[in-house]
Amino acid sequence: MKLAAVIDRLELCPFAVEDREIEVTGAYCGDLLSDVLAHVEAGALWFTIQNHLNIVAVGQLKDVACIVIVNDVAPDPQTVSKAQALGVNLCGSSRGSAELCMELARLPEFSP
């Protein structure tokens, strides 16, 4: 499923989206950076409440398809500019992680 479709279906708000055509192959949900570093897979959509600079570094390092900051938390301005600079896709949502994950799993295109 392409990122553009995910953004559309989950009604995400793009903060910095370089590549809309990238394939989203999975998802991960976590707010502890060390845990995410250890477990997130390349191509994943990463849901988190964290909004600081370090999430971009983690996103780039692990080649995630897109970072989604949940629960209406605004990203740090620095976070957005770094995401743009590094070409890391960054979106936001007014909804919580659980709700977004549950909805993503119900999309027919995303079913295993």
Binding site: L32, S34, Q50, H52, V73, A74, D76
Partner: peptide
């Protein structure tokens, strides 16, 4: 929101 001075131990 998001401004913090907490260390990694507290975040964990």
């Amino acid at each position: 929101p998001g401004y913090t001075t907490a260390n990694e131990k507290i975040r964990a």
